[in-house]
């Protein structure tokens, strides 16, 4: 089966790119389509994860969803792809639905694994409170894969990279400016996340959270009230009405564990909860619990992590 994987290579290749190529390889012969200016040498490394070929349309950066939709549709036709894979990120949220209308393909978004034996694909529903098993009734399928759902696997070698003209056409969206926080790890892709809630008492105390995150190499997150009061930026708000994440490790300090918060984080592989209240509901969803004051426990944990990291881990 011919599989097309779209990769956003605007800021280099990230783990989510390796995940989607690995995923595609499990389904069939993978062609990658991307846009922008990343060198052929760099793009050829996608072969290590199982891509047979990379097509790159260098006429656009890839900021406009109408242009991307046309390019990916052209590539899907060029390689007769039956299945098209995205990483379920902000680009996919704009482009995959458009593409499904253009190609009359069934769209499965938020996949968390490869198709099961019965052909259904498991997805997160009810903000992570349950899984749905979705079947497509059309001749083509589009799957957008939640980041951190499968492990990238290296099992190939560098592949060929070809220039491709996808007839991008004109853009509907004009980009005026971009604001990018430097050096931060994007939350949905982060493997380790340190998060805090109202228990931290005020924005001036977030140094404790940032220190632990820096020691671990983790991203930072927060509960909704913390973002609502403006202690932390909105993009850090996790939960049912914020970002849904599935890191390997989620450390929550001073968060009570309300159902709406849990909905966005219960896909995490391991949860550590630090709370003064032994009755906090979050302990029921945790793997490791620390009943204690975050103001004392966080610095102690940071020291322990630093010691661990400096011993060569």
């Amino acid at each position: 089966m011919s599989v097309l994987v779209y990769i956003n290579s605007k800021n280099g290749l990230h783990k989510s790119a390796f995940e989607t190529v690995t995923y595609g390889k499990k389904l069939g012969d993978v062609t990658v389509i991307t846009t922008g200016s990343l060198s052929a040498d760099q793009l050829s490394t996608l072969g290590n994860y199982g891509a047979s070929k990379v097509l790159v349309d260098r006429s656009v950066e890839g900021d406009d969803d109408q242009q991307l939709t046309r390019i990916i549709a052209s590539a899907a036709d060029a390689c007769s792809a039956i299945t098209i894979i995205f990483s379920h990120d902000l680009v996919a949220k704009a482009v995959a639905p458009r593409l499904s209308v253009r190609l009359k393909a069934g769209l499965i978004s938020g996949a968390i694994n490869v198709p099961s034996a019965d052909g259904t694909v498991p997805v997160n529903v009810f903000s992570g409170k349950a899984f749905g098993h979705v079947k497509v009734n059309a001749s083509r399928t589009i799957i957008s894969l939640l980041p951190n759902s499968i492990q990238p696997q290296e099992n190939g070698s560098a592949c060929s990279v070809e220039d491709f003209n996808g007839n991008a056409g004109s853009a509907g969206v004009r980009v005026i400016s971009t604001k990018k926080p430097e050096g931060e790890i994007p939350l949905p892709e982060a493997e380790l996340v340190v998060s805090a809630g109202r228990g931290l008492k005020g924005p001036e105390n977030w140094g404790l959270v940032e220190d632990l995150a820096a020691a671990l190499g983790a991203a930072t997150a927060c509960s909704r009230p913390v973002a609502d009061i403006g202690w932390r930026p909105h993009h850090e708000h996790v939960g049912q009405t914020g970002v849904a994440i599935r890191p390997n490790l989620y450390i929550a300090a001073g968060i009570s564990g309300a159902i709406q918060h849990l909905a966005g984080v219960n896909g995490s592989k391991v949860i550590v909860v630090i709370n003064t209240d032994s009755e906090a509901p979050f302990f029921k969803a945790a793997d490791y619990g620390v009943i204690g004051d975050a103001f004392e426990v966080l610095p102690r944990l940071t020291e322990a992590v630093k010691k661990f990291r400096s011993s060569g881990h």
Partner: peptide, 8 residues
């Protein structure tokens, strides 16, 4: 956008 904000 992935890891930031864009004005369009």
């Amino acid at each position: 956008i992935n890891g930031g904000i864009e004005v369009v």
